[in-house]
Amino acid sequence: MNIVVLVKQVPDTATERKLTSDDKTLDRAASDGVINELDEYAIEEGLLLKEKHGGEVTILTMGPEQATDSIRKALSMGADKAVHVSDEALHGSDALQSAYALSRALGRIEFDLVVLGSESTDARTGVMGAALAEYLGVPQLTLADKVDVDGQAIKVQRLTDYGYDVVEAELPAVVSVVEKINEPRYPSFKLIMQAKKKPVEKLTIADAEIDAARVGLANATTETVDVAPAPPRAAGTIVKDEGEGGVKIAEFLAEKKFV
């Protein structure tokens, strides 16, 4: 089975993240780039499926030159090869444009399954799986916390507010995963050494036959009008236990729909 895992490099959530003042896109110099956390689960799921069904895991990344650090990390977890779409013209592309561009790159790769994290820690739109599936014309199985493949059939548990739905489809398909699905492995030094020798194919938009008029900040379908730092957290609710603290906490949780 040929599995493609989408990996996005995002600013480290442990550092202060900033947008540039001129075009309100991500200031990549302000913080270190790391693999989007949910994508690590996607990589792990890809590797688990490969271990079970054979085949290859290909990493697909769209992003500037420094994203190669994240690609190498993904390869040192055990992926076999990578495709890196990198072009100045892609700068400032929004979610829809990115989905279009990735679908073009995927057109060059033979795949049975595309796996990705259900959202990124920077933009947090959570639409990539759905948008990509539309562009590719294949089924989308989103928010998966369990994936089973049997021949050409794929079945996932789709996480919902009330439990989970069972969703089935035929391959090829796109699956987005949530963090409950597995426990991502760490690289080993051996795999780090092997990662150096794994092929990374670099694609410009011309190579991937991406239409320049459909990507980039100037052609974006959305616009960032204004940005402001997140407000400080409001003070919490203090429950004083005067014999019925437990009831009050239960009521609070029920009101917030946690129980």
């Binding site: 990390k73 040192s76 760490y186 690289p187 780090i192 150096k196």
Partner: peptide, 12 residues
């Protein structure tokens, strides 16, 4: 580069 990837792994 593999040394710096190694240190990244150790730090994690």
């Amino acid at each position: 580069r593999e040394a710096s990837d190694l240190l990244d792994l150790v730090q994690t």
